[in-house]
Design a protein around this nucleic acid. Structure first.
Lengths: 232, 232
DNA sequence: GACCTTTAGTTGGTATACCAAATATGGGTC
DNA sequence: GACCCATATTTGGTATACCAACTAAAGGTC
């Protein structure tokens, strides 16, 4: 096993547990720690070059976020949500982004809207590129930027957590060209509404954008169903 | 100091850290641990009859919920949110409850709506009682019951967290008779909409109900301002 | 040969011990 | 007498050690 020690700054600017949570969260989002994977405490702590105490604190953070499930006498495990659970998550996220759209019309500066529009244009330029990761990352940044422009710290934090839990499945969904095309249409209307500061339009477009995503994700789960059935 | 040891079941059915989080959360909500109060780890652990490790895990839970703030080399402290922060929390909660109202129209059973209506009637019977705590507790249970009827686990959990953070300030707000009267009107429309399964009505009533609460809470902060100014 | 029992090993849960940073306090100096 | 520096104490952060529950495997019995 390669020694995956994370770099420890001599001055602990941040709690080690939070840094560990960040590292593990990245690994989960990127699929290096796939859903269902065990995360034994001793082994993982040794691999990261830390003790069990901060590792455990990091795992508890991820458990609170819903990315990891812990149960007594069993190794913590990367969450593997069902379609219904993901659907529920998307509903909540749609409500959060609906609010974000409304607040952004009040709070976003022109400069922030400029940057949001830039992201939209960059996505348009990449919509037919084979490099899906780039497209997807800008997609996520687009949504994050709108939420950030509301300056509502609670909204930003809660949205970020749902973002993490939905990252993987939305990434799988973004592989479909049709889903990307639909997303671009929605994004265009959102940017347009932001320019006009039209709360009603932006709010409902963002809300419905995510609700439509549920259908795309149903396809992803159906594919996974057939592929796992083929393996068994 | 009285020994406030919590009862430890010989079989740890639940993680000790979570139990500790529950105990401290109750104490914060009830004002036994008022905003700004220090929660030193060693002292508190000793008072609860546990070691620092699980106490710390409990504190981290409360920090994630926003009820406690932790910073290096300083005792954890009970959060003391500003009006702007509370206002932001209420906006998010309004979005969550708006979604809950919509989903409840689809998912709530007739029996669940019966219980929700019972709570409403019980509040009507207590609206002019001096026992504000009882009125307030039913008020909170009323909102919780509607959210629970959606069967959306993520929504329930996130709503519960915001519920905790808003508990104290909403309790202070509920002392005002005018606020209670207004609440009863809103609740009546909500129950009516639930019976009719009118998503649009229930959703917008619940959303606006909480947004109106912002004004009541502004009054609470104004009062606190003057009272602290008087003390200084 | 199959099933039950026991035991060894692994897991997470908790307590304790150690460390470093920050702070408050007391003594010394100007 | 006031201000500065050194030190002792208290804080949270981390590592380690211990424990109880669960699991799985091996050996004995029917």
């Amino acid at each position: 096993m390669k020694n995956a020690t994370i770099d420890l700054p001599s001055l602990p600017r941040q709690r080690l547990g939070d840094q560990i949570a960040d590292v593990l969260r990245q690994q989960i989002l990127l699929g290096q720690l796939p859903p269902g994977k065990n995360i034994p405490e001793r082994e993982t702590a040794a691999a990261l070059g830390v003790s069990r105490t901060p590792l455990r604190e990091g795992l508890l953070v991820l458990e609170a976020e819903g990315l990891v499930e812990m149960s007594p006498s069993k190794s913590p495990v990367v969450a593997n949500p069902t379609f219904v659970e993901v659907s529920n998550l998307l509903l909540v996220q749609s409500a959060l982004e609906g609010l974000a759209g409304e607040c952004a019309c009040d709070e976003a500066s022109e400069g922030e809207i400029d940057k949001i529009e830039d992201m939209h244009k960059m996505m348009l330029a990449n919509v037919q590129e084979p490099d899906q990761i780039k497209f997807f990352q800008i997609d996520m940044a687009f949504h994050e930027a709108i939420v950030a422009s509301t300056k509502n710290a609670s909204l930003i934090k809660t949205h970020k957590q749902y973002h993490s839990r939905l990252w993987r499945v939305r990434f799988l969904s973004a592989r479909h060209r049709a889903a990307r095309d639909k997303a671009m249409i929605d994004h265009g209307r959102i940017v347009e509404g932001l320019r006009l500061r039209d709360k009603e339009q932006v709010s409902s477009e963002m809300r419905e954008h995510l609700r439509r995503a549920i259908d795309n994700i149903r396809i992803v789960f159906a594919e996974e169903e057939t592929s796992t059935a083929g393996n068994g």
